[in-house]
Design a protein around this nucleic acid. Sequence first.
DNA 1: TATGAATGAGGGTTCATTCAT
DNA 2: GATGAATGAACCCTCATTCAT
Lengths: 206, 206, 206, 206
Amino acid sequence: MARNATSAGGGTGTGAGAAVPERLLAEATRLFAERGYDRTSVQEIVEAAGVTKGALYHYFGSKDDLLHEIYGRVLRLQTERLDAIVARDTDVRGRLAEAAADVVVTSIQNLDDTKIFFRSMHQLSPEKQKAVRAERRRYHETFRSLIEEGQRDGHFRPELRPDLVVDFFFGSVHHLGTWYRADGPLSADQVATEFSDLLLHSVQRP
Amino acid sequence: MARNATSAGGGTGTGAGAAVPERLLAEATRLFAERGYDRTSVQEIVEAAGVTKGALYHYFGSKDDLLHEIYGRVLRLQTERLDAIVARDTDVRGRLAEAAADVVVTSIQNLDDTKIFFRSMHQLSPEKQKAVRAERRRYHETFRSLIEEGQRDGHFRPELRPDLVVDFFFGSVHHLGTWYRADGPLSADQVATEFSDLLLHSVQRP
Amino acid sequence: MARNATSAGGGTGTGAGAAVPERLLAEATRLFAERGYDRTSVQEIVEAAGVTKGALYHYFGSKDDLLHEIYGRVLRLQTERLDAIVARDTDVRGRLAEAAADVVVTSIQNLDDTKIFFRSMHQLSPEKQKAVRAERRRYHETFRSLIEEGQRDGHFRPELRPDLVVDFFFGSVHHLGTWYRADGPLSADQVATEFSDLLLHSVQRP
Amino acid sequence: MARNATSAGGGTGTGAGAAVPERLLAEATRLFAERGYDRTSVQEIVEAAGVTKGALYHYFGSKDDLLHEIYGRVLRLQTERLDAIVARDTDVRGRLAEAAADVVVTSIQNLDDTKIFFRSMHQLSPEKQKAVRAERRRYHETFRSLIEEGQRDGHFRPELRPDLVVDFFFGSVHHLGTWYRADGPLSADQVATEFSDLLLHSVQRP
DNA sequence: TATGAATGAGGGTTCATTCAT
DNA sequence: GATGAATGAACCCTCATTCAT
């Protein structure tokens, strides 16, 4: 029974003056990443956003709905970017390298979403989980198609199972939320370059 | 205030006749993997184990303690195996390949622990979390030493950051819990072989 | 995390139609006096008040908070009355007699609070206990100042330690909750008169 | 179903080598005084005494029984002492002064018992409570008889109600547990002398 | 004489959600 | 559009006591 949250409200920023739904999503994202979905109470979210419970339930059907909306955002973003990269008219190795680097950079730029993604998926209601998984699967399939294309072209080793390669790589990506620190020694680009390089070397013909 | 759970009780099996602490740990592992730590109630655990809450709290200081014990078991197991492999007197490439394949196999054989590991770490109490992280770090360092050895020997690409490679690979390993299915098309050995192969190709000199 | 209980709600009575926080405080006072703080369950309080646990925790941060609020009420009442009496412009002997009689009367009129006071103080959380003790100390100091004034004036025996006299007398007052019965042979005024008389005789110069 | 605790066991000291029942009583007294009866668990008592729960339940029928035994000890002690003083063949004023001073000194010497006495009485089972109150009443009656004797002799003011005087004074005595500190500025004798003096002055004819 | 595993009832507290206003 | 009082169910945990050994 989710209201159409994203189109409600007026502003689009995330500061104190932003529209209420945006503020709620921003604070929820921060808190879910910080202490986990189940450990974050609705009360804490509305306090952080400076509104009351009634307001939250006016815009979102449930706490679960908030989480679903967060997943929707990051999935839409990553799908759009991947689709754009895949559609380019360049060597498949370059597109795979770019796709890999791009998902690392956006995962780091939205590290809270990354943390939430791999830790809280199973806390969604079954049907929402199904929807998210389906969308995620389409994303993986697109990524996999790059591998397959490279195998057909003779650039990538034909004995590899493309789906396993995808799971191999996205494990690494999802894991970023566990160890990456914005105040650490590595920039997002450095990690992206090296992860992309590792992936390419692992699939390319010798 | 954790009681000495692992040494208590008489039996060591996990069936209905096994010792109470073992039964509790087994059921807790299963339930935590199935529905998450926060979503599993102490009541459900004791019902599954066929005892009462009082019995659980006789052996374990808290629900948190149960989780800590689960982490301890898997960490001990993996550390022992890795140490044994690293200590061998063979080519570093072979040892890295074997270490990688082995952690994949044991992660799949203990898939419930793997699921719990990367999803519930942050639900441990801060101090227990610290202890687990410290032990995990030592494990990673041992693994990393293999990469460094290979770089010194000239087998592995010197431009790679060993710690990044470790995080890259263990992301893939932890992610197994998310997608691997025992009743799926792939055996543990198949996954282990291919993951190990991907790692080796990603680090070896061309 | 105590909500502002005393200013919440609309009514001020204590009957079934009174505001919820007031009803909760009234029933808690009665039950704490009757069977002790630790022996009174939150469930019993809310049942007596005709609400649910959630309502209690909406107004009070904890069971401990309820007790603290009860202490606050009686302390405010007694402090106000004592300050008014001390400030009068009459003979110090009269003021001491009146102060003594007054605290006896109000202790009997609020016998439940008196019972709770000396039995449940140590069941408050350490910091709340500290706060209550500090306020209680100020009350005692005001009372003591009457003794000291009488000693300076030459009405009271100079060899007495004023603080010991205060502890001596307030022991008697706190003890009222142990033996006084509203349906017994003595009126509040009779006890007040005699206690006041005993105090005056014990301190006056022969 | 209390076993005959006091006659069981061999030793009579309270150190680590003392007999088990004595050690249990000593630790229970200390803990009850420190944190209250309800807040002290049987587990804590047996741990402090260096025995197990089974041992406690071997000597005492219940936790309640322990408390009852503690009451019994202090009551027996005080009754014996008062009876001895009252029986003397001296001026009633001297005997009252001595009785008053003596109960103050023994209350301070057994301050833990004093604290427990006035705080935990109502946590005894109803029938044990009745027994304790009956014994306490006999003690008060003996004390009251001194007042009455003094009134008959013309030493004490005849208009006073002897029972009120007793309650007045024993309030002060019971209250000692609340404020007296062994490491404070006042010795037991100093307090005893002044309390006794206050009592005598309050009852004597001018 | 003493153990300690196990019970079972109840403890205080939290929380997503609803609804009259 | 928004409030916040109130619900009701579930939560983790504690504890005095029992009993087979």
